[in-house]
């Protein structure tokens, strides 16, 4: 199911409009390596081997942060990323990411960027944001609110995994054999939260629990939650943003913990990106975000399958 000609033409227009918007905002478009020694260490992302100890990037985040640390306050990259074994209506193993960073800006600045970019993409596709229910401002909520409202679960953020599992079971969620904190969390999320988000207008989901911190920093006023949002629109998980962690010691601890989980689950363990850790002390307070470009085009064209917006989606 490759894209129709009209979809490819719209995709081209959206790409040009997105580039123009970043340029007008004062961003520098950069390119970083696709083939790296240290792809993302996240437990649930698997990189594709690229020979001689290298891997294809699952996200350009490590290199982009090094550029911010080196003194480039606004950078954007539009590039291919690869994630092994991800294929479905919203997933392709090879896809296009738009990733950008704003130094000395709050997370909310990236939410405003998303609202602007979606309007840019819709107009490039000849649609009006208001008439398709995608006018700014988008709704803003928190993970804790969503769990309370749609699953009846009071998420503490620092409960032990068995307690969360018990709460999910009590709420009637079929948790199966899930025991890890994040596995139970996402079972609830997929069963209860995502269907609700799919039926709602565009929504920013802020304040993720610390066990799902990834590269985000903890909130100053409540360390059980981290500075992170995800944007959901039109049934799509469109973007993920962090208030970036700048503490190299905590970052090393997280990398090592993730590496241990990967090893325990029989997954490839990637070398820790020492160049990133060395650069973190120079990283100013920064907000960074990754947005799936193919999904942005799906949203703008109201198409349900990612292959409908890719020229060679069957590759």
């Amino acid at each position: 199911m490759a894209a129709a000609r009209a979809a490819l033409e719209s995709r081209g227009r959206i790409l040009r409009a997105v580039r123009a918007w970043f340029e007008a905002e004062g961003f520098l478009e950069v390119e970083t390596p696709s083939r790296v020694r240290s792809p993302g260490q996240e437990v649930h992302l698997d990189a594709i081997p690229a020979g001689h100890g290298h891997w294809l990037v699952t996200s350009p985040e490590y290199h982009l942060k090094r550029l911010v640390a080196a003194g480039l306050p606004r950078v954007v990259e539009i590039c291919k990323c690869w994630r092994a074994d991800e294929s479905g209506p919203h997933h392709a193993t090879e896809f296009t990411m738009v990733e950008w960073y704003r130094a000395n800006a709050p997370l909310e600045a990236l939410a405003a960027d998303c609202e602007a970019l979606i309007a840019v993409a819709l107009r490039a596709a000849g649609r009006d944001p208001a008439s398709c229910g995608l006018a700014a401002p988008f709704a803003r909520t928190t993970v804790r609110d969503l769990f309370a409202r749609h699953a009846g679960i009071r998420l503490a953020g620092d409960e032990e995994a068995p307690a969360l599992r018990e709460a999910a079971r009590a709420a009637g969620v079929a948790v199966g054999s899930a025991e890890a904190w994040d596995d139970v969390f996402y079972q609830v999320f997929l069963d209860r939260i995502e269907p609700a988000l799919s039926g709602a207008g565009p929504t920013f989901v802020f304040d993720w629990p610390a066990p799902l911190a990834a590269l985000a920093r903890r909130k100053e006023d409540d360390p059980r939650w981290v500075e992170r949002f995800e944007l959901y629109a039109g049934g799509l998980e469109l973007a993920n943003a962090f208030g970036e962690l700048t503490d190299p010691l905590e970052q090393r601890r997280r990398f090592e913990a993730e590496a241990r989980v990967r090893a325990a689950r029989g997954k490839d363990v990637y070398p820790i990106d020492e160049a990133l850790l060395a650069a973190l002390p120079r990283l100013p307070p920064t907000a960074g975000i990754a947005l799936g470009f193919d999904r942005l085009v799906m949203l703008a064209l109201d198409l349900p399958d990612i292959r409908q917006v890719m020229a060679f989606g069957d590759a």
């Binding site: 996240e42 649930h44 991800e86 479905g88 919203h90 596995d183 969390f185 999320f189 990834a214």
Partner: peptide, 11 residues
């Protein structure tokens, strides 16, 4: 259908 939250396991 394959589904996967960005930072979670595949389902």
């Amino acid at each position: 259908q394959f589904v996967k939250p960005g930072k979670g396991a595949a389902f």
